[in-house]
């Protein structure tokens, strides 16, 4: 654990009715507020929307937060959004943790509000527990080879290769057959121009 005093902010998202429809988000917020190291817990209608993100930034500043937990949708969707958000407020992006209370909670327990709320509370508690041990991390920069490979020389591969090459990139177009053209080359006139496909 890091030496500085933990100051965790928790942001519970209603996601309109997507979460609030089957999870008592206010109860989750109240529960989070009562957990150790949590200095503020806020409920938002849409945390990912601008007002929701502004709220996070405002609280980071006001409460000097050094960890942020967002209880909303899957991190696969919005982890980047919230990492960018806390970065803008001066926090290292790796001090964010998300609790998935939508895809893996409200949406899969639509008819059991009590159990869904309990699960959301546990998810928030687990996220806070993890957040306590998070530390700022530095991302490494990796150089990119400015070349692309297109596998397949049908209409899609041809177009992709031309676009990339026209944009200034070196392209390797790899085709299994002796000629490019793919299935398209076998077609007679094509819709809507009714001209030759080649």
């Amino acid at each position: 654990m890091v030496d500085e005093e933990l100051r965790i902010g928790v942001f519970v998202c209603d996601c309109g009715l997507n979460i609030a429809g089957s999870v008592d988000t206010e109860e989750v917020r109240r529960f989070a507020e009562g957990l150790p190291d949590v200095v503020v817990a806020v409920r938002n209608r849409y945390t990912c929307a601008d007002p929701g993100q502004e709220e996070i930034k405002k609280n980071i500043e006001e409460y000097k937060l050094n960890r942020v937990v967002v209880a909303s949708c899957t991190p696969l969707l919005h982890e980047k959004t919230f990492r960018d958000c806390i970065s803008e407020a001066g926090l290292n992006p790796y001090l964010l943790e998300m609790a998935n209370i939508r895809e893996q909670c409200s949406w899969v327990h639509l008819h059991d509000r009590e159990a869904a709320t309990q699960k959301a509370k546990d998810a928030v508690k687990m996220a806070i527990a993890r957040a306590r041990y998070m530390s700022p991390e530095e991302e490494i920069k990796i150089p990119v080879t400015d070349k692309a490979m297109v596998i397949g020389g049908g209409i899609a591969g041809i177009q992709a290769a031309l676009d990339l090459a026209d944009a200034g990139h070196q392209v390797y177009l790899v085709e299994k057959q002796p000629s490019i053209g793919g299935i398209m080359a076998q077609l007679d006139k094509t819709f809507p121009t009714m001209d030759c496909s080649i």
């Binding site: 490494i140 400015d146 692309a148 177009q159 990339l164």
Partner: peptide
């Protein structure tokens, strides 16, 4: 169909260009 293939190819080329143009990418820590 052909039109959708061409559209998607343009999109793939464009998505690919974003990375190639950047010169460097940041690897997650």
């Amino acid at each position: 169909d052909i039109k959708d293939s061409v559209t998607q190819a343009g999109a793939a080329a464009s998505r690919s260009s974003i990375i190639l143009n950047a010169g460097t990418i940041t690897g997650e820590a």
